[in-house]
Design a protein around this nucleic acid. Structure first.
Lengths: 154, 154
DNA sequence: CAGCTATACTTGAGCAGTCAAGGAGGTGGC
DNA sequence: GCCACCTCCTTGACTGCTCAAGTATAGCTG
């Protein structure tokens, strides 16, 4: 087996395991999936806690359609609201509500705990983790996002 | 953002991009998805080109149910057949047909080409690739049997 | 202004996987 | 030989995304 194909397939496999692990904790404790969480997290990083749906899609590696569908249940339970743009009636911002912001804090604590368990010492050193982040970022960059690893979020 | 959570999310993101890339080539040239390909590839690695569905599931990080559904279209187009076990009527092996074996060879060439493009020099050195494979293998583990998050320690 | 093209988003259909439940067959205790 | 229990696999109902098509708005060009 070529080493490049092997590496690619291992990465895919690792993601499956990772997602399962996050989903188990996040859905158990907060009733949301990892996908929901990343949506909220990304919104939380944006200025004002709001973003255009198209930008959200690009930032998350989804299609706009995926964002529409992912946001719907979050709006329904009041974590996110839809805000129109006064200058451009085509755009509908997705914005975190106060409830959403509060829950996001808790979810984030859960997610960080899970991530710390996954990458626990002694198997994982800080260098390993940084290395993994660097390598995976190079792959992600080949498609939908060119945002570099060190770009600051506002 | 905690570095562990950051690394986990980047890995998930990288996988999305990777899967898209493989799917584009594999479905364009051979009409199969990456999931189909990994199924066939794993079968091809097994002695006699056949495996029990349960073992296939474990090897691929899927549920048995996912294997049943994934195999169905491949049986329909004749790449895989169902073979009963003469000693245990519960098991239904999945086995590569000759057609499947032939097509697998072509798919594999395509997949290796894509993988080589993704991990092309000069961005990627052989060491980088080996490193990535090693790091992701640690996460993927070697089984589907991951303990729930509530279990402490290790 | 009219008309063209481009952008933002939603929607219908469909696919790939999950979980929970269940059928069917195997296995061991008595 | 029967019964309780286990394993292998499938199925129904659902989720979460995709693509393609459609709607509505914006903006340029003459």
């Amino acid at each position: 087996m070529s080493s490049t194909l092997d590496a690619a397939l291992r990465l895919v496999r690792a993601q499956t395991a990772l997602v399962r692990r996050f989903d188990a904790s996040l859905s158990g404790l907060h009733g949301v999936s990892l996908a929901d969480f990343t949506l909220l997290l990304r919104l939380g990083q944006a200025p004002g806690g709001r973003m255009r749906r198209v930008d959200l899609a690009e930032a998350l590696g989804l299609t706009p359609s995926g964002v529409t569908r992912g946001l719907a249940p979050l709006e329904r339970i009041g974590l996110v609201t839809r805000e129109p743009d006064p200058r451009d009636a085509r755009v509908a911002y997705a914005a975190l509500t106060d409830t959403g912001r509060t829950l996001l804090r808790d979810m984030r604590a859960t997610a960080e705990r899970v991530a710390d368990e996954v990458f626990a010492a002694p198997s994982w050193s800080p260098d390993d983790i940084a290395l993994l982040a660097g390598l995976t970022t190079r792959i992600g960059g080949t498609g939908l996002t060119d945002r570099p690893a060190s770009a600051p979020d506002r």
